[in-house]
Design a protein around this nucleic acid. Structure first.
Length: 469
RNA sequence: GGGCCCGUGGGGUAGCUUGGUAUCCUUCCAGCUUGGGGUGCUGGUAACCCGAGUUCAAAUCUCGGCGGGCCCA
């Protein structure tokens, strides 16, 4: 292997990323429609395991899964004005069916508010129907005009969206606090540290009262939004007439929230944990947690393979998915294969191990050791510690690259926070002069006793900025 | 909206200026060999985006289409 090995460094990250998503067998980018890639079995399994974690969180917080149609009538879509403005330029339209032109155009959902809410208005009659907490995991379609990138900017999005309806603004606020707790547990399982920002008004979701973004920092020093939480107040419930009868017999409009995530979560996992050898999958979603590589020498073939099969069974019995790689290849090439795919734990069994009643284990982040053959329970602890290490490493990287500044500083990289008076014009000038986009106000809110980095008026808060995907 | 670049086996490429037998690496298949970090050898499968034009002859030149990528507003 003479050529240089690609590493996910700041400069080479995008190149590395593009290569790794195909090499590790996550997707096939050869499907001939821009921004629509094919999920390959390993990538799809990973995504489904991520979805499984989401469903677990939804279940523990009493959300109910629904599944709405892909097509939305134009008249539904047009009910909320801001929403149309925000999305109309990236909507796919269905205008014909067979040979007939449709009387009313239908659109492929870019997000599902306008599909769900007309039905919500039928489902909700009284305060007893509230809160209504639903979610769905479906494909949405957005005609992205910027450059597409596997899992990060796609035109067919694998989308998780939770939609809730509440009696009061305060109840909806409570939901948002719950959403943040969900995010915390969810991303911790994926060993992904993230930051929370309240988006500035000029960048909130189309139709929202306010939006909260969950962002991660990629090795390219660009941030990636991996989740968003929106307070809609009554912005949708009024046009969609989602009303309930209160205890006092009067009718009120609901307060609503949404929480969205997509395959960008997978993009974040690839980018944040990956290295020059490939992926590093956190054990919580690893399709294969343990791979066994038999080290076969002449005359040992059967003994080694027998032992490996026994071991595989025992490892599965303690609850770890395990694959025995008995392919006719040399061990070295198998090591490379499984490292590329990011399998957290490798077990080697060779003649020496057999003689010593040991096994050789190797964690994907480089730790190598021998453990006793009859102590395989310990593999679980090893995986736990591995998750802990990759989380800590990612956390260090994130915190090292958040810079709290007092004034504009051109050569700042990563995420910066500047004192801000709160005026839109100052915020936009910061974006321009830093050549960054604003992520918003850091949450939880931090006190600020500085002067606005642009106008020098008293800064009421901080504005967080970064280069973004 | 304006400008630029590129389409060659599954992946990555050479060849194009100056038209003539399509290069190398890798993957894949078969056999032997090897096996604790990409074992070696032999053989095999497999490609010039589409259409038109110029020409005895087009991957190569011209025009059009489709597809991909980049930069600027």
């Amino acid at each position: 292997m003479g050529e240089e090995v690609l590493k996910p460094t700041k400069e080479k990250f995008d190149e590395w990323y593009n290569e790794i998503v195909e090499k590790a067998d996550l997707c096939d980018k050869r499907y001939p429609i821009k921004g629509m890639n094919v999920w390959k079995p390993y990538g799809w399994k990973l995504m489904q395991n991520i979805d499984k974690l989401i469903r677990e969180e939804m279940e523990r917080t009493n959300h109910q899964e629904v599944c709405f149609p892909l097509l939305i009538p134009e008249s539904f879509f047009k009910k909320e004005e801001e929403h149309i403005k925000g999305f109309s330029s990236e909507v796919y339209w269905v205008t014909h069916a067979g040979k007939n032109e449709l009387e009313e155009r239908l659109l492929l959902r870019p997000t599902s508010e306008t599909a769900l809410y007309p039905l919500f208005s039928l489902w909700i009659r009284s305060h007893a129907d509230l809160p209504l907490k639903t979610f769905q995991i479906v494909n949405t379609f957005r005609y992205e005009t910027k450059m597409t990138k596997a899992f990060i900017r796609v035109r067919e999005i694998h989308f998780f969206e939770a939609h809730t309806c509440h009696e009061s603004f305060e109840d909806a606020e409570k939901q948002i606090r719950e959403d943040l707790e969900i995010a915390k547990r969810f991303f911790r399982k994926l060993c992904i540290p993230f930051i929370i920002s309240k988006r500035p008004d000029w960048d909130k979701f189309a139709g929202a009262f306010y939006s909260i973004g969950l962002d991660v920092l990629m090795p390219s020093m660009k941030t990636l939004q991996v989740g968003s939480i929106h307070q809609y107040k009554q912005n949708f419930s009024i046009p969609f007439e989602i009303k309930f009868e209160g205890k006092d017999g009067k009718h009120y409009y609901c307060h609503q929230t949404t929480y969205g995530m997509s395959e960008r979560v997978l993009g974040a996992i690839i980018g944040i944990h990956g290295d020059e050898r490939g992926l590093k999958i956190p054990s919580s979603i690893a399709p294969i947690k343990v791979v066994i590589i038999p080290i076969i020498f002449k005359g040992w073939e059967e003994k080694i393979l027998e032992e490996c099969k026994k071991l595989k069974k025992e490892i599965e019995e303690i609850g770890l998915t395990c694959f025995l790689d008995a392919r006719d290849k040399t061990p070295g090439s198998k090591f490379y294969d499984w490292e590329l795919k990011g399998v957290p734990l490798r077990v080697e069994v060779g003649p020496k191990d057999l003689e010593n009643k040991m096994i050789t284990i190797s964690l994907r982040d480089g730790i190598k050791k021998k453990i006793k053959r009859d102590e395989i329970e310990k593999l679980k602890d090893e995986l736990k510690e591995y998750d802990e290490r990759i989380y800590k490493k990612a956390e260090e990287f994130l915190h090292k690259n958040i810079h709290v500044l007092k004034e504009i500083c051109k050569d700042a990289e990563g995420i910066v926070e500047l004192p801000w008076c709160g005026k839109e014009e100052c915020g936009k000038e910061m974006e321009e002069r830093m050549d960054m986009k604003s992520l918003g106000i850091p949450l939880p809110e931090k006190e600020c006793n500085e002067k606005c980095a642009i106008c020098s008026d008293k800064a009421t808060t901080w504005l967080r900025l970064a280069r973004t995907y």
